[in-house]
Nucleic acid binder design. Structure first.
Lengths: 185, 185
DNA sequence: CCAAAATACTAGGACTTCCTATTAATGGAC
DNA sequence: GTCCATTAATAGGAAGTCCTAGTATTTTGG
């Protein structure tokens, strides 16, 4: 197998030199899948390949999203909080609702809201009917930033996902089944 | 729209009570997609939904992987380094090769190798032909842990990805095209 | 041949995530 | 009506990612 891979590598590298010199000639995840199968883990090889692909795809997409948001001074985690508030009728939500909608740990919300508050994008106040609870409210600046960030993300990421419409639909549906099985909804 | 969503929510919640009380009655990502479309961002709605799904699927899968590895005292990031070394012919690789294979920043490799070294799972040494470079070598204990961790992951995660074979294949292929377009291989 | 550019790695910092433990407030059981 | 269990949020800590800068080599170009 090593011989074949090396040959393939050499052939592709010489056949069509790319502008990006670091480009690989084979898919490393496909190579890992083959390794898995040849080590007696054939039953797990496809699952490993899919999960590894998912990890890598996430890394790629997140990097693109963060690069788009960086000039606006906000991260994706904080953008998600802003949009949740933006969509709510009053522009306010309790901390625990934010955590449950975003499916993250309560302390992650505390962290994000701390930073949003420092940046003047949201304010905290005590819930009138339950003094344990904290209500987060979007400020004028937070609302404006949410809108600018959405415009940037739509233009630079969401409207060009580098996939065909059919792939887009398939991907959403398969991931939807995965999320559903995991108890997401 | 608020009315419809609320109605739907109420209907589903009363129609079929689940054992998990916190289960949602609708897919929040589908709801977000609808919100996007109704706000004049129809062109971006599908891309937003797919990317959000990808983020959430990643979160779900990573949590399962980390839960499986936790009893073994290793994280997924460090497991990836161990397996890269395990698959190499001599059980050794330079830092920069690890970074390029895993597609992570060099400092992430430094971080992971620091911890693996502290745990006695790998050793560092200077490359004989290039004293800038550092060679990472798997120890006996590192090799054993890699094998135990793989057995655990295969049994508890990779062999039961909660998807049909067809979905598994589709998902891999769509993600493969996404990664390829992003310049992964 | 030697100065300048490139490369390999590490240090420190920002940010996210989760975990465990703590504080404050609510609500139920007796 | 009080005492206790539950709930909401936060504090501190571990671990991951990336970024920018720095150090130490190696390579390259005049």
């Amino acid at each position: 197998m090593d011989v074949n891979v090396t040959l393939l590598y050499a052939v592709l590298m010489t056949a069509e030199p790319r502008e990006d010199a670091k480009r690989l000639a084979f898919d490393p995840i496909d190579a890992a899948r083959a390794q898995w199968a040849h080590n007696g883990w054939a039953e797990a090889a496809d699952g490993m390949a899919v999960i590894t692909s998912l990890m890598r795809a996430h890394q790629i997409v997140l990097a693109r999203v963060e690069a788009t948001l960086r000039p606006l001074g906000v991260t994706f985690a904080r953008y998600e909080v802003l949009m949740l508030l933006w969509f709510s009728s009053r522009g306010t939500l309790p901390m625990k609702v934010i955590a449950s909608r975003l499916q993250v740990h309560p302390t992650s919300v505390t962290n994000a809201v701390d930073r949003l508050e420092d940046a003047g994008l949201v304010t905290r106040s005590t819930h009138p009917d339950d003094r344990r609870a904290v209500i987060v409210a979007l400020t004028r600046g937070g609302r404006e930033l949410a809108e600018r960030a959405t415009a940037a993300l739509n233009a630079e990421v969401f409207e060009r996902p580098d996939l065909t419409d059919a792939d887009l639909r398939d991907l959403f549906e398969v991931l939807s089944r995965l999320r559903s099985t995991a108890g997401d909804f």
